[in-house]
Design a protein around this nucleic acid. Sequence first.
DNA 1: CAGTGAGCGAGCTTCCGCTTGACTT
Length: 626
Amino acid sequence: MSTLVIVESPTKARTIRNFLPSTYRVEASMGHVRDLPSSAEEIPEAVKGEKWAQLGVNVEADFEPLYVIPKDKKKIVKELKDALKDATELILATDEDREGESISWHLLQILKPKVPIKRMVFHEITREAIRDALTHCRDIDNRVVQAQETRRILDRLVGYTLSPLLWKKIAWGLSAGRVQSVAVRLLVRRERERRAFRQGSYWDLKALLEKGKISFDAKLVTVGNVKVANGSDFDENTGQIIAGRLVLLLNEDQARALLSRIQNKPWTVSNLEERPVTRKPSPPFTTSTLQQEANRKLRLGARETMRIAQSLYERGFITYMRTDSVHLSEQAITAARSCVQELYGSEYLSPQPRKYTTKSKGAQEAHEAIRPAGSTFRTPQQTGLDGIDFRLYDLIWKRTVASQMADSRQTHVTVLTQVEDAGFRSSGKRIDFPGFLRAYVEGSDDPNAALEDQEVILPALKVGDKPNCKDLQAVGHETQPPARYTEASLVKMLESEGVGRPSTYASIIGTIVDRGYAKLIANALIPTFTAFAVTTLLETHFPDLVDTGFTSRMEQTLDEIATGEAKWLPYLQKFYTGEMGLATQVKEQESQIDAKVARTVILENITAKVCIGKYGAYLESENEEG
DNA sequence: CAGTGAGCGAGCTTCCGCTTGACTT
């Protein structure tokens, strides 16, 4: 009598093995075990001649998918088959999400078990949770499986129909896809904004004031009750003040003239405002937020972050690292709260345990948030880790602990000071109670952003006070173009639009760099001319597909398929073979797209045109001498 | 007659998402 349990990850298998009686054998499938053929060599001889073989989907036979066992999974499948021979029962314990349900179904298709089968799901890897799950097994949900197959087939149809069009019209070996083309388009749109950006410049005054031996900064904000222009008053496309804004734009001469006019005149505090502010801690890490913070704070790329997190996971330091959930189990909340209690004292605990819920589009929540493993958290020092492993664990530990800490209470102070007809403003921040800021301060994509946990001290002032002016300077400023995407900000954007999944964020960036759509220079993703050409073609002829809304609409339909409200076949038919379907559109548009035009990128302010050739981009100049 | 080279045709590139090692640069 023995039971074979199959999970997705070998680390998970190892852990669960300890919670089950010795008659249970636990093995890992290592993710998917079958897929559409990834290259020509995976297409079986029997169907090689068929015209749909390359696509891997028989569109004319109700979109029947051609599933094969990839080369690197043959060994796993053989091992699972052997393990099943000795079993009297099979339990499929893959993750409880769309892909996990599908993996279980594929396992059944391949293993063809003669013994009874059960589907088991659990969200926490504790002895109690596993034992409990064993007594609450269910059947495979075929509708969820169909939703996954629909997703898989649709992605194949998009990629393998649009990519060949790009080979014909732009260059060999290019690619398009539901996810990557949206990512590339985001980079291209930002670059267009940057090219359209016109710099504006303005001047203002900066004063260093002093009262009772405490000095503080003040910045010019009004002259004669008219607001002085700052960066936010400029139109990005003209470099001029936005039409209709009643602001005073100072140039260098005017700023210096004002300076000499008010120099040595008395300063008077004209207004004081104090405002209480509370700040809440950020939720625990998901894959996306971990990648963002590791990029901002540790300067790690998404791939590297995942590699380190994987190794921490395998050694039992953290929970699973590919997740879209911010949920913490009861034991995790208890562990985090006892860390707070021990290290900072009970006044630093949030009065009630904080429960976070996931808001991002399309989240499937098969796992917990990323947190220190176990029912008590080892402090970073207790782990014995060092180097980058230590720093990443430290980040995860702090974020998790902080998520159960009290709000930070601060007082923001604004002081207005008048000298002649010029008004100056000073901003102060007093931290009345640091709360979670003691443990963790979230990073920012904006290098100029003020640090959340730093006080800005102003002296005690009251209206009518006359601070001394120790220094007064005219300062020139220039408006800045919108920043290029970093790995962190691209992942953040994709996640918020529901595009891509935790297991793919890092590889999306890899794909667009490998295909020559972007270069990663000094943490900035810079789109290439090829990216411009491809994006322009797709936007012109297939605008729906490169819209970020495409994935959310698809997800909605997949959810309906999973609940039985919608049928997968009519959806695919409409999407692909219908009158406005993709196959139909590609066929129709193909003759209309001029390859010479598609290969040419026209940029403002450059007399030459950029063309995409066999070996990359080259310049084509209008005047022959060029 | 043998060696050369133009021209033709066949086969291939490509998607997203799940999971690790095995592999090369």
